[in-house]
Every structure is written in structure tokens, then in C-alpha cells.
Amino acid sequence: MTGAVAAATLLDGLRAHGNDYSGAERVFRARTGLALTGPVRQVPEGISEPVSVIVATYNGARSLAGTLAGLEDQLWRGFEVVVVDDGSDPPVRHVVLDTGLAVPVTVVRNPVGLGAGAARNVGLTVAQGSTVVFLDDDIRVSRNALALLALRQQHTEGCMFTGFRDNTRPEVFFAPDGTHTPRIEGDWRWLSDRGGDRYLLTTADRDVPRCDRTSFELVKESRHFKDFGHGRVIGFWDLPGMVSGHSLCVKRADAVAVGGFPEEYATRWGAEDLAFGALMAASGIFIVPALDWVAFHLRHEGRRVPRAVEHARLERALDRYRSMLRRPLDERRFPRHRLQRAAGAGRPGVECYELVP
């Protein structure tokens, strides 16, 4: 239409919004007496925020058992668990039933794998909590993790919290909770030595110059991510790059409002968490690190494809990501996923559904 003004692109949104969440920080401290980023050593009483934990899994039965055991160990019980089985062969429902979670559980089966983004959106479709926590199926959280995330979301608006991970071995990952403690120093955003010729440029802008540095402390250098936003970069990274899909906590309404996770990244190294982070940041949601949210990640044993092949896949995914950044920010809509109740729930407290093709 002649004279019409083009809608702002996603990249325009990233450049328009900063990430200085000091106002939310002050409100949180006034209400709780605690620091928003933490670490919080003792969990206060009076937590009432309803939480849904969404775990998307594909052929991850072995590690999923440890992830669910970590959820069963939670000291605060005001949450439900939603497991989305994205085409696993065999299905993982028996793993969920064998865990015997003493909280409400929903299992959704996608007969054909759709990818991590679509699986998480399916989880959002059935989630009942006003706050959602996304976990990968190889992440084991500490016993107070969900309580502290619920506390943060109960007393803030417009914040998405991201956690950290420490890669570990099976004997640690599957040990009873409390036997070992994950270290935040194990997460690359805390301390990274990814050199310029060994790592891909993940920033939204292609014209960011290559960096000669070989060591980064991104949490500290960015004042806990506050100095990201407005397109600012540190080395190879900008604000969306601080978002890791293995551990995210956000208000469900905020996630739905941006259209959920982009579903066009259906392969490994899909960059769907990077794209989701860009959508959230461009819409004005603050990306906040939770320094006490450190989980064990089960280290993968061996690689199915060479590292160079994985990097080539990621480069293609980043090209799709940058193409997405040029689209209008307001064109995304939350996808509709139709579900039907599956036969044989298995036990009381477990709801089972299947995705309708």
C-alpha cells in the first residue's frame, strides 16, 4: 500500500532495546531483600508462583531418568512436569512412569520428530503454570532450583532468567542429589577461551569484526548482561547469544506473545534458543543470569559427526537466523498444535497426549 510504513524488523528491535534491568532489580530487592541475580543461599517462605517444567526429549531415555530424578528431589513442590517426546524410538513414556514423580505430570508424544523448537512449543501449549522452565533432557538441577526461579518470577515482570551448566560424567550426573555440587565456572559464559579462528561468529550483525582475544568472562564483562542490548557485542557474542535453551525460565505469556520458539531449526545445532533469545530481547524482555541456577549436564560420550561438519551445520543455521532477523517483528504468531488424549495414562497423576498430524 502506497505510503505504508514497514513494520520494524527483529534486528531493529534488538538495536532499540537495552538490557539494563536495574529497575526490576530494585523492585525484587525491596520485596524480598535479595539480589535478583543471586546467588540466593536460603529459600524464603511464601512462594506461590505456579511453575511448569517443560522437558523436550529425543532418544534421551538414559539421561532423562536423571533429569526427572533431579525434579523429584526438589524441596519446593509447587510445579508440574511436561515431557514432550519428540519422536523417540522407542517412546520414553515408561521412563516417566518409572520415575514416579509425586507432582502432576503430562507426557506428549510427537510421533514424528519436529525439532527442539516445535517440541518446546508443544510443551507451552499444554503447560498450566504462569511461569515455565525449559530444561534439556540431560540437565540435572539442584534441589532449590525451582523454588528460586518461582521466587524471581513471582516478584518481577518482563524478565527471562537463564541458568548455567557444568559438564560432568555419568557417575556424578546419576548420583543422589547433594553428593556433588556443580560449578558455575564450568559454563562458557563464566569463563571461555574460545579463540577467533576456532569459533563461529554468532552475533546478529555480520559486520562485527573478528576478535583476536582468546579469553572471555562474559558475565562479569557485561555487568551480568546489563551492558548487552542495543546491538552491543563482546567478542563474538551479543545478548541473544547469552540465552541457552538447556536452562531457561520465563513467564508463559511472554513466550507465547513472541510466537514461541522458531520451528524452522529442526536439526542439531539448530540455534533455536539463539533465535528465541532474539525474539524475547527485541520485544523488550530482559535477559537475566541466575547465578545460583547451576546444573549438571551429562557430557556426551563421543561424536557422531566430525566437529567441522557440526560447525558447517551451525553456520547454515546462523544464516537462517540472520534471515529471520530481517523479518517484521510483529509477524510471528504462536503456532497451533492439536493434541488428542492417548490411550492408557499409566497411573493416576499422569496425563498422556499425542500430537495430531
Rank of each mutant, 00 (worst) to 15 (best):
A312M: 01
P335V: 00
G284Y: 07
R326C: 00
F296Y: 11
L291A: 08
V294K: 04
F334H: 05
W269S: 05
R307H: 09
G270T: 00
G260V: 06
W293A: 08
A312G: 09
Y321H: 09
F334M: 06
P306Y: 03
R338W: 06
R304G: 15
D319N: 12
F276V: 08
L274G: 05
A275G: 07
T267F: 14
A282Q: 00
M324A: 08
F261E: 03
M280D: 09
A312Y: 07
V309M: 12
A290P: 11
V305M: 14
R313Y: 10
G259K: 05
R336F: 00
E301W: 07
Q340G: 14
S247R: 13
D330S: 10
A295E: 10
P289Q: 07
E315R: 15
D292G: 14
G259C: 07
R303F: 08
L329W: 01
M280N: 04
H311L: 11
R341V: 15
D273E: 04
T267Y: 09
L279Y: 01
G259V: 04
G284V: 13
L291S: 04
S247K: 09
A255N: 02
V294S: 06
R316W: 04
V258S: 10
R327K: 04
E263W: 01
D319P: 04
G284K: 01
L339S: 13
A271H: 09
P335S: 06
A312K: 12
V294Y: 02
L329P: 00
R299P: 01
G259R: 03
S323Q: 15
R307A: 15
R313C: 06
P335R: 00
G277R: 07
A290S: 14
K251G: 14
M280G: 03
P328L: 05
A266M: 08
A295G: 11
A275E: 01
P306H: 12
A278R: 05
R313G: 11
W269A: 13
A266G: 13
G270R: 02
V309C: 09
D254W: 06
L325R: 00
Y321R: 05
R322S: 02
L325E: 00
A295S: 14
